[in-house]
Amino acid sequence: MPKGNIINRESFLTNIREKIGGIAADKPVQKPSWSVSPQRNVLAGYDREQLITVLKEQCQNIHTDFFQTDLSQLTSTIESVMEQYQSKTVVYSDDNRFDKANISNFLAQVDSFKWDRHDRDASVEFAERADIGITFSDITLAESGTVVLLNDKGQGRSVSLLPANYIAIIPKSTIVKRMTQATDYIHQQVVAGEDIASCINFITGPSNSADIEMNLVVGVHGPIKAAYIVVNDL
């Protein structure tokens, strides 16, 4: 990762140190240890099946269509969602899970585009006119009905953003309780000195807005319709 420049750092920090009572510049910051963490009790003891039920119910609150299928039926499920959303052109991320799940062949037969990490213009241009975008979920949060995409390399930020419809394929193994488990994972990456994805998206259903008279409008800048497909044997 190229290093950035920091401008005015010392004067900025000196000012703050003085204001909060002259803390020495070389004194390491001690993070307090929190005495209560109620977030860790949410859905405590739930197994994966129970979490899937939570996820399914939450999908109703977030205007998202929920499907559950075995790997063998995944292609036909995708097909029927595409039909339901009247979608013909597909953009999907460059992710080897598409091969593993045996859906690359199906996608090659329709008007589709695999995100090209080396060709920004072509990728964005296709995503902009595609009817539907498809990605895999990296971590799935049952409580809020959220798919977490660690967008780097061939994932493409635009795949889940520009088309009017969106499908997230959710391997059952990615389902966790809530945001806490996802932030724990990312925190562990940081502690281990690994680079984290340059753009991490927590996506909860289609885009929406309540800016007009507090009326909920589903579909503003991002997708207007969204579907989650949980795959049992992935």
Partner: peptide, 11 residues
């Protein structure tokens, strides 16, 4: 519980 998009960017 969470809004539709929470986007965390790192550079």
């Amino acid at each position: 519980k969470l809004t539709s998009y929470i986007t965390a960017l790192s550079g």
